[in-house]
Amino acid sequence: MSEMRIEAAKFRDVLGHYPTGVCVLTAMGTTGKPVGMVVGSFSSVSLDPPLVGFFPAVSSSTWPLIEKAGHFCVNVLASDQTDLCRQIAGPGDKFAGVEFSISDHQLPVLAGAVASIECKLESVTPAGDHFLVLGRVLRLEAYRQTDPMLFFRGQYGTFASRSA
Score class of each variant (00 low, 15 high):
residue 72 F to R: 01
residue 47 L to C: 14
residue 81 Q to H: 11
residue 26 T to N: 08
residue 40 G to A: 10
residue 138 L to Y: 05
residue 103 S to N: 09
residue 19 P to M: 10
residue 119 C to T: 09
residue 40 G to P: 03
residue 41 S to M: 12
residue 9 A to E: 13
residue 27 A to L: 05
residue 5 R to Y: 04
residue 108 P to Y: 02
residue 87 Q to N: 10
residue 20 T to F: 01
residue 111 A to W: 04
residue 71 H to L: 13
residue 70 G to W: 03
residue 78 A to V: 03
residue 96 A to G: 05
residue 62 T to I: 10
residue 105 H to F: 14
residue 145 Q to A: 13
residue 154 G to N: 12
residue 138 L to E: 14
residue 75 N to D: 05
residue 108 P to H: 08
residue 39 V to R: 00
residue 98 V to R: 05
residue 7 E to N: 14
residue 64 P to M: 06
residue 31 T to V: 09
residue 123 S to Y: 09
residue 86 R to P: 10
residue 62 T to H: 04
residue 123 S to C: 11
residue 51 L to Q: 12
residue 136 R to V: 12
residue 82 T to A: 14
residue 69 A to F: 09
residue 162 R to F: 12
residue 33 K to F: 06
residue 132 L to K: 11
residue 76 V to T: 01
residue 137 V to A: 08
residue 58 V to A: 06
residue 132 L to C: 12
residue 19 P to L: 11
residue 66 I to A: 00
residue 98 V to F: 05
residue 154 G to C: 11
residue 156 Y to R: 06
residue 25 L to N: 02
residue 49 P to F: 13
residue 117 I to T: 07
residue 28 M to C: 02
residue 149 M to I: 03
residue 160 A to P: 00
residue 72 F to G: 02
residue 33 K to N: 08
residue 162 R to V: 12
residue 155 Q to R: 15
residue 42 F to R: 04
residue 52 V to K: 08
residue 156 Y to S: 05
residue 71 H to K: 15
residue 133 V to P: 04
residue 120 K to Y: 10
residue 148 P to N: 07
residue 104 D to E: 12
residue 107 L to H: 01
residue 128 G to Y: 08
residue 75 N to H: 03
residue 11 F to T: 05
residue 53 G to Q: 10
residue 136 R to K: 15
residue 128 G to E: 11
residue 57 A to N: 04
residue 78 A to L: 01
residue 106 Q to Y: 01
residue 79 S to H: 10
residue 155 Q to N: 12
residue 129 D to V: 07
residue 116 S to V: 10
residue 93 D to A: 01
residue 75 N to E: 02
residue 53 G to V: 10
residue 83 D to V: 06
residue 6 I to R: 08
residue 130 H to N: 14
residue 65 L to Y: 04
residue 99 E to R: 15
residue 1 M to I: 11
residue 114 V to C: 07
residue 52 V to N: 08
residue 78 A to F: 02
residue 94 K to S: 04
residue 53 G to P: 09
residue 82 T to S: 13
residue 140 L to W: 14
residue 82 T to R: 12
residue 112 G to L: 03
residue 155 Q to L: 12
residue 143 Y to L: 08
residue 48 D to C: 05
residue 135 G to Q: 12
residue 90 G to V: 02
residue 96 A to E: 14
residue 161 S to C: 06
residue 32 G to L: 07
residue 93 D to C: 02
residue 136 R to L: 15
residue 47 L to P: 09
residue 94 K to D: 06
residue 59 S to H: 06
residue 73 C to W: 01
residue 2 S to P: 15
residue 115 A to L: 00
residue 38 V to Q: 00
residue 34 P to H: 09
residue 76 V to C: 00
residue 48 D to V: 13
residue 127 A to L: 08
residue 26 T to A: 06
residue 89 A to M: 02
residue 99 E to V: 09
residue 113 A to Y: 01
residue 67 E to K: 14
residue 62 T to E: 02
residue 16 G to D: 04
residue 81 Q to N: 14
residue 162 R to H: 11
residue 43 S to A: 15
residue 134 L to N: 11
residue 136 R to H: 15
residue 17 H to E: 10
residue 67 E to N: 09
residue 113 A to C: 10
residue 122 E to T: 09
